[in-house]
Design a protein around this nucleic acid. Structure first.
Lengths: 155, 155
DNA sequence: CAGAGCATTCAGAATGGAATGAACGGTACC
DNA sequence: GGTACCGTTCATTCCATTCTGAATGCTCTG
């Protein structure tokens, strides 16, 4: 039986995603939790999350809230159970993508805010800041393309 | 004279970019340095960077190296000067974009690496990981679109 | 109503990454 | 050849964020 191998693969995936998430400015625990929920598609109990990931329940609570806010995870309940269960959201990846796009657009907004108050005679800075804003615009549009692509065949 | 106002705008921009950079997983100093170089398009002396940004020379050295590696900044020399000078790179924003794309593709690679060793019978995980990889693929392609767009009118 | 089972919150500990500043090596001047 | 000027490196300090765990309050159950 190769059950062990699969389990190893899972924890490997979990750890990788922890690091990826960290690189994206998300707490490592949240990334690991997300990974676990992606792997097992089924709802996982609050207590099991803490046990499997070996993190405190407080941490589970916080990370779950973060993932819920971003639309990556759903909190579900079960008939005879008092515990909360968590499951990967149906359109999790789409939400992720949208989240990134929003972040980019915020950054772009920052630049444009500066541009608005920058006197016209400051040609040099204006030129370069404009170019910078266009850079963000290009990314935002590119991500929008990605959103469209993921959305059309999805449903 | 509104010189003061412009100066304020500049340091405002510098600080904003410091925070943005930090959000993107880059050291704050590097972001602030990049901002300064974008604003003043001209080469700035090593010592002036330290003075203007109020950071140590060691920090200037490290941040400059980071920005150079990413192709965002050029180190230039001047005839009678012993100091190094730094200038925003000609195609800085394009490099930035490419850098992001590479990072995304690396993350995608991680996922695919797991997928390769995941036995076919693990249908559920396979489906979801595949979806996840497609998500990254969509982003990478979107960014590629952005690269193309920025490149064509550029030169 | 009492008690158990849960999730949340928050103060404090722990961790990781960035900034500092002194020490170092190299290079141009006199 | 000596000196002054520069940039780099690295051990240390500093700071921000994350994680923990105990305290809290809520909601079911019997």
């Amino acid at each position: 039986m190769s059950g062990d191998t699969t389990t190893d693969l899972r924890s490997d995936f979990i750890e990788r995603m922890g690091l990826i998430a960290q690189g994206e400015g998300m707490p490592r625990s949240a990334g690991r939790m997300l990974a676990l929920l992606i792997w097992d598609g089924e709802p996982i109990a609050f207590a099991d999350l803490a046990a499997t990931l070996q993190i405190s329940r407080g941490n589970v609570s916080t990370s779950a809230r973060l993932l819920e806010e971003r639309g990556l995870v759903r909190r579900v309940s079960r008939p005879a159970e008092r515990q909360d269960f968590f499951q990967i959201a149906p359109n999790a990846f789409l939400s992720m993508l949208n989240g990134t796009r929003v972040r980019i657009e915020n950054a772009m907004g920052e630049i444009e805010k500066v541009l608005e108050t920058l006197p016209a005679r400051e040609q040099g800075p204006r030129t370069r800041l404009t170019e910078y804003a266009e850079f963000y615009r290009a990314i935002a549009d590119g991500l929008q393309t990605a959103v469209d692509r993921l959305q059309s065949p999805g449903r």
